[in-house]
């Protein structure tokens, strides 16, 4: 029992933020993200003996992704109650130089916020690959395992997601210049 708890605690400490963050990007809803995170925690506990620690990362992300897809299907993409990831105030990565410059600080905050919104608007397949690669820091191979797709597909989706994101942000850039 103690061994299982140690393993469980280790995995939760290691991946809790990744699970929650990924769910939040996919579901765009804190409540659902929390539900999915809890369900993943329980799934990890129930399947502790079925995967080894080295394969845990891919397994955990696959489970999280599948649960998010289930939630999206169940909810039938009803955006009525959705709200942005930035609804709750969060600290942004700003250095001292930027801290002393209110304009730059505001610009970065707004830009990051817009980027997050643009990421949220990406199609689910592109979004999942983009978030896993750019934000969660997974490698192509790991994403391929987690989402059960070939590495070349991962690369193509990532490229499309980057281009789509750029298109989404083009209008924001134009508005800001004006």
């Amino acid at each position: 029992m103690k061994h299982m708890q140690t393993k469980y605690q280790f995995l939760i400490q290691q991946y809790k933020n990744n699970i929650y963050s990924y769910s939040l990007y996919m579901l765009k809803n804190h409540t659902d993200a929390e539900d999915v995170t809890q369900e993943v925690f329980i799934k990890i506990w129930e399947n502790l003996g079925r995967f080894n620690i080295l394969a845990a990362k891919a397994w955990i992300f696959r489970s999280t992704h599948n649960l998010c897809i289930d939630y999206l299907r169940r909810r039938n993409l009803n955006y009525k109650y959705e709200y942005s990831i930035d609804e709750n105030y969060e600290e942004l990565l700003v250095d001292d130089k930027i801290e002393s410059n209110p304009h730059a600080k505001t610009h970065i905050k707004m830009m990051t916020s817009k980027v997050k919104e643009a990421i949220e608007r990406l199609p689910d397949k592109l979004k999942s690959v983009f978030v896993l690669y750019e934000i969660q820091g997974l490698k192509y191979r790991e994403i391929g395992k987690a989402l059960e797709m070939p590495i070349n597909t991962v690369k193509v989706y990532l490229l499309r997601a980057r281009q789509k994101l750029q298109e989404e942000l083009k209008d924001y850039g134009t508005q800001e210049v004006l």
């Binding site: 933020n17 990744n18 963050s21």
Partner: peptide, 18 residues
């Protein structure tokens, strides 16, 4: 855009969830 994307931090899991 890449700079903005890479400056995004992973959302922290609420402690009460654990």
């Amino acid at each position: 855009t890449a700079r903005s994307v890479h400056s995004i931090k992973i959302e922290e899991c609420p402690q009460e969830l654990l």
